[in-house]
């Protein structure tokens, strides 16, 4: 128990245990957040730190600091080829899925047509199906139809599952769009096309961008479905997985860290832009 004197304010008179309890209850959420973020960022931090490892073939033990790997990220065999495949596939799949997905979202949100319910369900399926099942069924399909596996089959597979995410994101944005805004535009002499271009599209754009970013990261990230349908084409996740059997080169850490910082920068930039627009 804390020693008490008459002159001390009431607060200080409380026993230590009670004060500690109060401090804990006031800061619990912060402590929880510190643990949560630590847990999330330990792998990222590890990857980043080991991108400076002066390693040979394997990157498991610390052998001294070097920036060589950052100076020469393509140094390890095939790493940049895999990265470039992943980026190309990601960009194509994102572009196609965003255009198609946005159009599907508009159709589903704005029109009542036969087969609408079925379409809604079908769109949802790729998100609900385990990737293993999706990858295997696609492989069976490509083999049956006789499509040679490779770059094109990866792109087709990625477009397929990316569309779902774009549709869901854009549809949510469309649902929150006040139909009276479009009516007001029409009332103010804008025809259907002008209404779309000046009002609907700019207001739905954040949803479309969000859908596209989601599609790109899902495509870049995908391993299971890709592995089934890639033939001998290498992608970055596939490269990491294959080399993990022999030892991942530090260049993989360099590329992984770079991707992380690019994404972080993009998010910060996005927030800065939104904040400036609001101000």
């Amino acid at each position: 128990m804390a020693a008490t004197t008459e002159s001390l304010p009431a607060r200080a008179k409380r026993p230590v245990s009670q004060r500690a309890g109060r401090w804990l209850s006031n800061n619990l959420i912060r402590i929880y957040a510190v643990f949560g973020f630590t847990y999330l960022f330990i792998p990222v931090g590890y990857t980043f730190v080991y991108s400076f490892n002066n390693s040979g073939k394997s990157n498991l033990n610390w052998r001294g600091f070097t920036t060589d790997k950052w100076a020469n990220p393509c140094g390890a065999p095939d790493v940049c080829n895999a990265l470039s495949n992943s980026l190309k596939i990601g960009l194509i799949a994102t572009a196609v899925a965003t255009v198609l997905g946005t159009m599907i979202a508009f159709a589903l949100a704005r029109h009542r047509f036969r087969g609408r319910t079925v379409t809604n369900l079908t769109i949802f399926l790729p998100m609900a199906t385990p990737e293993v099942v999706l990858g295997a069924s696609l492989l069976a399909f490509f083999l049956n139809v006789g499509v040679p596996l490779g770059f094109q089959t990866i792109v087709i597979a990625h477009i397929m599952f990316c569309i779902s995410f774009v549709v869901v994101t854009v549809k949510a944005r469309l649902a929150s769009l006040d139909p009276r805004l479009e009516q007001a535009a029409m009332d103010l002499y804008a025809d259907e096309w002008q209404t779309f271009r000046r009002i609907t599209f700019p207001l739905v754009l954040p949803g479309i961008v969000a859908g596209a970013l989601l599609a790109f990261s899902l495509s870049f990230d995908d391993f299971i479905i890709t592995n089934f349908n890639s033939g001998d084409v290498n992608t970055f996740p596939k490269f990491v997985w294959v080399s993990s059997l022999r030892g991942i080169p530090a260049q993989a850490n360099v590329i992984g860290s770079a991707m992380f910082f690019i994404a972080l920068f993009a998010v910060l930039l996005g927030q800065a832009v939104t904040r400036r627009r609001r101000a």
């Binding site: 006040d178 009276r180 805004l181 009516q183 007001a184 535009a185 029409m186 009332d187 103010l188 002499y189 804008a190 025809d191 000046r198 009002i199 700019p202 207001l203």
Partner: peptide
């Protein structure tokens, strides 16, 4: 609607949230 000499002040105002006041009025 865009072919008639009629304009409406909507109950909820329906101002275009992404345009500033000048552009709203100039629309």
């Amino acid at each position: 609607p865009y072919k008639r000499p009629v304009n409406t002040v909507f109950q909820s105002y329906a101002l275009f949230p992404h345009l500033d006041i000048f552009e709203n009025v100039a629309f």
